[in-house]
Simulated scan of single mutants.
Amino acid sequence: MESKGQYPPRGNHTTLMDFILLGFSDVPDLQEFLFGVFLIIYVIILMGNSLIIIITQTDPSLRTPMYFFLGNFSSLEICYVSVTVPRLLTDLCRQSRSISFLACATQMYFFLVFGATECFILTAMAYDRYVAICNPLLYPLIMNSRLCIQLAAGCWITGIPVHIGFTYLIFSLPFCGSNQLNHFFCDIPPILKLACGDTFTIEILVYTVAVLVVTIPFMLILGSYVKIISTILKLPSAAGRAKAFSTCSSHLVVVTLFFGSGIISYLRPKSSHSTGMDKFLSLFYSIVTPMFNPIIYCLRNKDVLVALKKFLPKWIVI
């Protein structure tokens, strides 16, 4: 009997025309609860990041390179979660959870592109903090508007050509047997599990791209913060040290959450992969971390808090 969504066999393989996203179908009694939880998280992400974008654009005191990159980061977070969460919410409400081959490839492509962009923007934000703290006198000269725009544009564009080819190679693999994707979106590990034949070359490519996109930016950020912390500790006054560290702490927390889960997910050995762990890590870096980001930046950043206190009363009155 042929599986749903497949053409008749061609040679030794079957051409899949769609996948079935199993998602959280293994807990049918929790579908409504999970829908409510993910909907609330999605609304928090949209509202929190939209608020940051608005105040960084409207408050004159936040028109600095640091908040320029924060506005870009918040815009990116909205795009990033919108690739997966609306589809997840839809699947929690319906019985048919099929996703076409093309739609699956498109979802993976945008997820990878926005994920790479996030790595690059977090690196640019670390560089901004490095220049501000380690070279404060040259900061206005180095971090001029032209360089900020170039860095932001580079972050958004760099991953596009790489992941077009990367996604094409993954979906050029032969797929046979089951078309059931035991995940809630089209991510690399569950897709490769359904591929037939030797996937060794693709797996090496996955590790290579992960090193280039995740590990190298993480090492650059780590190097920046070693120098930043070293400089902060040399400051003569405790107040100066506290102020300098407060401008970096939010970014450092976000970097730890995002890169930690991403590195564990994509760079751990294949033998240690399990469906439950893959879903948990994917939930963490694709949904949970973006929810915490606006909260972290708002609660741990005095400038943002002051801007919010000025903005919210006006908005409430309107």
Rank of each mutant, 00 (worst) to 15 (best):
S172V: 08
P140W: 00
V211K: 03
L137D: 15
I263L: 14
F73C: 09
P136W: 11
S249P: 01
S282V: 03
F284H: 10
L89Q: 07
T158H: 02
I157M: 15
P60L: 09
I55C: 09
F259H: 14
V113D: 06
I170W: 00
F38P: 02
S100V: 06
L88G: 01
G262Y: 05
T64M: 04
G260W: 09
V288N: 03
M125V: 01
Y285G: 03
Q95H: 13
L102V: 05
Y285N: 06
S274V: 07
V85M: 03
C176A: 11
L192K: 10
Q107C: 01
A239Q: 15
I296R: 04
A239E: 15
L281T: 08
F111E: 00
S261C: 12
F38G: 06
R94Y: 12
R94W: 13
F245K: 13
S98H: 14
L62P: 04
L173T: 13
W315S: 08
F280A: 06
L21R: 12
T231G: 01
F185K: 00
P9S: 09
D128A: 08
V304Y: 05
F284S: 06
R146I: 07
G36I: 00
V253D: 10
K243Q: 07
V37E: 00
T56M: 03
T247H: 13
L205N: 09
I232F: 08
F184D: 05
N12L: 10
H273R: 14
K227I: 05
P28E: 01
E203G: 15
V209S: 05
A239P: 00
A116K: 04
S282C: 03
I170M: 06
F110T: 04
C248L: 04
T158W: 03
A103S: 11
L39N: 05
A239W: 09
N301P: 04
P86F: 10
F218E: 11
P217Y: 06
S96L: 02
V113C: 02
C104G: 15
F68Q: 03
L39G: 06
M17H: 11
I52W: 04
P294C: 15
V306W: 08
L147R: 14
T84W: 12
F292V: 10
L21F: 13
F101D: 11
Q180D: 11
F114V: 14
K279E: 01
V253W: 10
Q107N: 13
I54N: 04
I45Y: 11
P290H: 06
I44A: 13
S172E: 13
S230R: 12
L281Y: 07
F284D: 06
L141G: 04
P190Y: 01
L267D: 15
F111P: 09
E118F: 02
D26I: 12
F184S: 05
I133N: 09
L51S: 13
